[in-house]
Amino acid sequence: MSANVPTTLLEAKAVAKHFGGVKALRDVSLTIRRGEIYGLIGPNGAGKTTFFNCMTGLYVPDGGGFVFDGVPLVADAPHQAAERGIARTFQNIRLFGNMTALENVMVGRHVRTRAGVLGAMLNNAATRAEEAAIRQRAMDLLHYVRIEDRADDLAKNLSYGDQRRLEIARALASEPKLLCLDEPAAGMNATETAELRELIEGIRRDGTTILLIEHDVKLVMGLCDRVAVLDYGALVIEDVPAVVQKDQRVIEAYLGA
């Protein structure tokens, strides 16, 4: 395989999910390549968040499955998804509100660290070294998303934009191969959105593949290498932004509205 042929990082194979009569996902198949920014768009209720939840193990799909990094993902095991290298943020920010910003990111290091109960009780050299490394890494990540001056504030007391950034820092703490962002620009003003865009581009440059759910069409089309459109739980099209923007079905379903 030559280096410039893009390789697949995540493959969704006919993923289906129903809630009673609601078909939230109808056999959705798509492919995310290593190193790209992949956009997932669609009208409200199209199934975007449901797709995230299936992929990260919070929901068990009713059909189909995922292959990540060449190996199938185990359904119903969110902690394993994180361990394999999938990290996410939530549409309705879910931080650990009564923990400090720094502690939130430190929790994000959980899957990449080892110390157990015995280490904690003995507080031996290995545990202390790991703890110091966790703290340092978390601090670096806060710096990376530019909220290091809020390190000791409780997460719930951060501004909305900073909470979004903190959630990204926490996700990055697990050293993901794939970072999934669920509407990170929701509720942000133009300046904040521009800053967010810069941040996302930076993360990609540093080698992390990104899956982005977003309603801000301008942001998605400008930022993403490829875009998939969902409508009523079904995949409409998966292609580069220039093609997606001109597609008649997409204009009808979404962009035109």
Binding site: T56, G57, L58, P78, H79, A82, A87, R88, F90, R94, L95, F96, G97, N98, M99, E103, M106, V107, G108, R109, H110, V111, T113, A115, G116, V117, A120, E130, E131, I134, R170, A171, A173, S174
Partner: peptide
């Protein structure tokens, strides 16, 4: 590390799973 994991579960179990 374990203590933080406990607190995280107490704060938001779904987010704790996701990390």
């Amino acid at each position: 590390r374990i203590g933080r994991a406990w607190q995280a579960i107490r704060e938001d179990e779904i987010a704790a799973k996701a990390v």
